[in-house]
Design a protein around this nucleic acid. Structure first.
Lengths: 207, 207
DNA sequence: TCCTATACCAAACAAGCGTTTGTTTTAGGA
DNA sequence: TCCTAAAACAAACGCTTGTTTGGTATAGGA
């Protein structure tokens, strides 16, 4: 029983004692550092030290710094995508679906996950050897929002692509000014959506 | 006469022959490289080579890589601010002022100036020794948009700070997807403003 | 023409980088 | 208890980095 669960938990080779138990702390450390300072400014020695080991030891778990970043990035997209998809399932109303998705998206990017925040800090072109992989990963996530916007009942003049890009651009930019302790991230998302939904001038406004 | 114009053209010391005639090409080369690849990914040797000199020679014009970046960044803010302020002066209408500003802003960031695009690519925290300087510089520019939004006749429920952040965030994010040859940058700006001004649902829409 | 500050080159510097190598510790299965 | 694979260390590798140094061509003012 214990042997079974152990072998199922292991991610690579079923043989030998303790498998990959330090891989996750290493990813965590890398995620925190990449998010805070970007890909090029972080060294393997820093990542290793933050996980309690030496630089050379990292190469037992990851073949290169680029590969480590790709793993962090993909985990980040996975986490935020899971969370957003889950949030969408609470309602059938297209607007409420989009709002829930934007709340979840913004909460992940502003507050909760170093992994998700790496997506905003590290650009695919920063990592030439993994650029295509990162772009594909990010595009896959964004297609989620494309579907949500496509399902919206909108005035026929509205450009849905531009709406999606405007909305995501505005939400993602919040990481440049957001400080925890003030308005919660979910409220940031809702306020931005309200700005887009409602007209800026009152119907009967004077002047 | 020629002596007078020469001494006025010189930017630093009025004594001695040919003054700083290679400083500008150096800044141009740095701007192009920083914009394309970011601060940490670009080396002094690349910048020097792109300007037709050797790495050590750059230090005759700039005391450090950080200082070089700060000079490029400040020049970028100066260029975009001048252009935006100029664009605002063509009208007295608050909405038209903001629209002209956003058009100019977006044109600079998407098309015209390597210097201006450095502002989006390089984050102040990438350059610790110049962080405060860059932040102050950027904040000064953004206060321009604060004034423009403050002058808008808006419904009293509209949060003007959030509107400014949403608008600028959306405009700036266009550099992530914009490709020249398609929609012109000015139109991108106008479409985003229209999305914010007008309601997304038609007044009498069914469903 | 001589002089001086300008503007660069050529070469090196120390430090730090990502990565490799060979060895050692460690823990579980037999 | 012994064995084996996992997972780490310690040290070095070759290379690149930002920067410094000392020397040199150059061009205008006197």
């Amino acid at each position: 029983m214990t042997a079974d669960t152990a072998s199922l938990t292991a991610s690579r080779s079923p043989r030998g004692p303790r498998q990959d138990n330090r891989r996750q702390p290493l990813l965590d450390a890398a995620a925190a550092l990449f998010r805070a300072r970007g890909f090029h400014a972080v060294t393997m020695r820093e990542i290793a030290k933050s996980a309690g080991m030496l630089a050379g030891s990292v190469y037992y778990h990851f073949p290169s710094k680029d590969d480590l970043l790709v793993s962090v990035y993909e985990e980040g997209v996975r986490l935020i995508a899971d969370r957003v998809e889950e949030a969408c399932q609470d309602t059938e109303n297209p607007w409420e679906k989009l709002e829930a998705a934007c709340r979840a998206h913004t909460e992940m990017l502003l507050d909760e996950s170093d992994y998700a925040q790496v997506i905003l800090k590290v650009m695919p072109e920063d990592v030439p050897s993994g650029e295509e992989q990162l772009i594909a990963c990010r595009d896959g996530y964004e297609s989620l929002f494309r579907n949500l916007v496509d399902d919206l009942p909108l005035a026929p003049t509205v450009d849905r692509t531009m709406l999606r890009l405007t909305l995501l651009g505005a939400l993602n930019s919040a990481k440049n000014w957001y400080r925890s302790g003030g308005m919660p991230p979910g409220e940031v998302a809702m306020k931005m959506i309200e700005l887009l939904k409602n007209p800026l001038q009152e119907k009967g406004s004077r002047v």
